[in-house]
């Protein structure tokens, strides 16, 4: 065991300070230290995408980032997607399109898809599949996930253009 290090972060728009061992992954810190268990561990080696979070302005598999690396950074997890009790359009679309079965991969997909829509507000099916290829789902065959992401993209752009028009 080694001495713990103090880490200062902003998690889901709130300042969060925590102590962790240098060997602890960001995923472990989020789940076991901070208590945000919405981010899931499926493999521990960066290949399933269940632990995807936004770190600064990019998405990472948090099992491959050390907790100490998050010092001074801003982090968004699935717990930070909704605005209060209003679900994010992606969250709503996942529910309406039955894009989850067991739900264990859903937090990672939501974070990855949110980043996709920020970069490509109206992604093609190919762009969506390519972007989400680091997130494994074993229940759905991806069909309903892709449809949900595309529906959310349309919803977000329509809302924005309606807002601009008014």
């Amino acid at each position: 065991m080694s001495a713990k290090v103090q880490v200062q972060t902003t998690i889901n728009n709130e300042p969060v300070e925590f102590l962790c061992e240098p060997r602890q992954s960001l995923l472990e810190c989020l789940r076991d230290v901070v208590g945000l268990t919405g981010t899931k561990e499926g493999c521990g080696d960066g290949n399933c995408g269940s632990c995807t979070v936004k770190l600064g302005d990019r998405i990472v598999t948090s099992c491959l980032v050390l907790g100490v690396e998050a010092n001074g950074e801003s982090i968004t997890t699935v717990e930070g997607l909704a605005h209060g009790n209003t679900l994010h359009p992606l969250q709503k679309a996942f529910l309406e399109h039955a894009a989850l079965q067991c739900g264990i991969c859903t937090p990672g997909f939501l974070i990855a898809a949110d980043a996709l829509l920020q970069k490509h507000p109206q992604p093609t099916e190919e762009q969506t599949r390519f972007w989400l290829a680091n997130n494994l789902c074993r229940c759905t065959g991806y069909d309903k996930i892709i449809r949900a992401v595309q529906a959310a993209a349309t919803e977000i752009t329509t809302t924005k253009s309606n807002g601009a028009a008014q």
């Binding site: 945000l36 919405g38 997890t77 699935v78 717990e79 997607l81 679900l87 996942f94 529910l95």
Partner: peptide, 13 residues
Amino acid sequence: GADKVTGRALYGA
């Protein structure tokens, strides 16, 4: 559904 898209649902781990 709401629990599972907001990260509130509690899985074994």
